[in-house]
Amino acid sequence: MRETSSPHQASGAAAAAEPIVILEDFTVRYGKFTAVDRASFSMPPGACGLLGQNGAGKSSILKAVLGLVRPAGGTARVVGFDAVSQGLELRDHVGYMPEKEAYMPGLSGLDSVILAGRLSGLPKGVAKQRAHEVLWLVGLDEARYRDVAGYSLGMKQKVKLAMALVHDADLLFLDEPTNGLDPEGRVEILTLLKDLVRVKKKSLILSSHILADVEALCEHAVLIDHGRIVAQGTIEELTRGALRSYDVRIDGDLQAFTEKLRSSGILVETAATAASASSMDPAVAASVEVRLADEQTTAIVFEIARSVGVRLRRFEPKRRTMSDVFLETVAANAPSGGRS
């Protein structure tokens, strides 16, 4: 079987560098309630995470971009199409996997995927052939003739994914794809998505409040809180943050070491610091987390250690998890009043 590439994939390395989603001052309102407040961000091809707590506005962004909700302001350009004025063309080139349970009632998995393909403009024969292929790809080839209503939750998620893929979408919008799945089902879906991104070279936007999913799958993330974009960048950038963190293990006077670090303007923040403040035994090795600002070099820590007479047993960069990043960012941007 001959492999062909989609227009988006065929556009080469030059196109690969261009953002696949660009939002500028994008606003979504439900009556007087502002769900998304002047959101501006761009996402490169590949896997991007849209992170936020429940009700943060993630689904509203997806729904407004897909034309399910009319945006109150701003612009959204997705895979080269304007989301408002070219909604129909856009929806032919993207796939959407909704968060809540959704299936075509009374249809088998195969008929559902065929119908999805035909609704996206595939001729009947092509839709039928591709439906068989994508159902095989997501692991539903055995169950494809059964009514979707009788599927397990994990199988329903896979059918939704097959429906999102059947028409050769340039970009997939996945709204909480692992929500409600048991651990095994979650791993299965994530493995499938990793395969799509890394092997099949598909681009996707993963909207989720499960930070581990985003961290495992995405190279880029946008953090949204109370309808506002609070951080964005690559996972590497976000987890590194503005401050560089290091795990430091010493032999010697911990109190003198930490006081000297603080007096030099270095942030020292660990549970060990607090615990050791009152019951410190200079003879026992202790660990602290040291955070350096951009302008500070690691040499200063070595200098302070030498000056207070402690021996450094370990000094290694500490990587923050997305969970740390998210909690810190949300805390830093906590609104003082209402949302709108």
Partner: peptide, 9 residues
């Protein structure tokens, strides 16, 4: 089968 592209009308 992989995931074939579709360039048709």
């Amino acid at each position: 089968f992989g995931l074939r592209g579709y360039d048709g009308d």
